[in-house]
Amino acid sequence: MTATPARVILICSGKGGVGKTTLTANLGIALARLGETTVVLDADFGLRNLDLLLGLENRIVYNAQDVLEETCRLEQALVKHKQEPNLSLLPAGNARMLDWLTSDDMKKIVGMVAERANFVLIDCPAGIETGFRNAAAAAREAIVITTPEMAAVRDADRVIGLLNTQGVAPVQMVLNRVRPKMVANQEMLGVNDVTDILALPLLGLVLEDEQVITSTNRGEPLTLNGSLSPAGRAYMNVARRLRGEEVPLIDPSRERRGLRARLMGKIRRTTGLF
């Protein structure tokens, strides 16, 4: 049990496929590595795959449904991560839970989990129906994740409106899958275009990174590695900012130049020519 009340954070987007579960998994690992006791809760009962991304699929014995039905204790249902003992996962029950789960059930379970953690991350289902509403009812703050696409931004805007009416605050934003080259050529919405519409504090900026796909397939979130890829660094920074650290945001245009400059620097150093 911890002294300070846990921070219960909803991770949602409205639109599907923008990176809710990936963010939840990576943020969970990152917070755990920073020494925070963290529980990630899969609220996507219909299409659960947070366990998959964390590589814990084959370790699940009990789930949230069993806890609610009191067929097991909460400790039995929580799956501890194999490398990061600070992180545990409360798996979603089967899809039939959708039929009977109420927001009170959700509050009950989050309340139980919150007693034994510093951070509770709720992986929200896509959409704005009951699944989202139940999850939002149990959360205190939220991170809205979106990509620089009109459809994703529009849906995120809708979700922010709903979160405001439900009294969830603060709501922060993570912008995912930014492609600096396309932004520079004005083929993609820029960071300013998105913050302009959503008017939320930017908690993080994640560049498009192919390693996310391989890490997802392997069930090893990027933040697990010691040497971090660009996206992994970005997730780590999100975790730091969540804890109140001041970490400057990366500048996507500088990031691109930075790559070339780094390369030139390497050549300069190794050849000693210039």
Binding site: D157, R158, G161
Partner: peptide
């Protein structure tokens, strides 16, 4: 925000933005 719909019987003054959608 997107998806919200405000109707007024008289005139309407919005102190804020009206977002796309």
């Amino acid at each position: 925000r997107s998806g919200e719909h405000l109707q007024a019987d008289g005139s309407l003054l919005v102190l804020g933005d009206v977002n796309p959608g």
